[in-house]
């Protein structure tokens, strides 16, 4: 299972513990997280389902390419980091 963790900045606003999840893509992985925590979705994705402009996701050390569909691949050993982008201040 991939391991996903979230910026501590987000923890201030919504419960988001690090966790192990199944999923072949970033979208599938996050959907698995949101299934248990629906409120978290609106903090990471906008109302069109895209990654928020000032949030960035790293998979195995690389920022994801597809910020709209979140189709970047994830493996069973992947480390997924959901971070705030410094473009947001």
């Amino acid at each position: 299972m991939a391991h996903v963790c979230f910026t501590p900045h987000l923890e201030k606003h919504v419960d988001c513990p690090a966790q192990d999840i199944d999923g072949a893509t970033v979208r599938e992985s996050l959907d698995a997280v949101f299934a248990k925590n629906a409120r978290l979705r609106g903090y990471i994705l906008d109302d069109r389902g895209r990654l928020r402009q000032h949030v960035v996701i790293f998979v195995d050390g690389k920022p994801i390419v597809d910020r709209e569909r979140l189709s970047d691949s994830v493996t069973a050993t992947s480390e997924i980091y959901v971070m705030q982008a410094l473009s947001g201040g």
Partner: peptide, 25 residues
Amino acid sequence: HGHFGNKLHRSSDDGKNWEECAVPV
């Protein structure tokens, strides 16, 4: 929020406690 989007919070006890409600979508 600069990073995490718009949220709407509501309080029914003069601001002692706040709950997050829905935003327009």
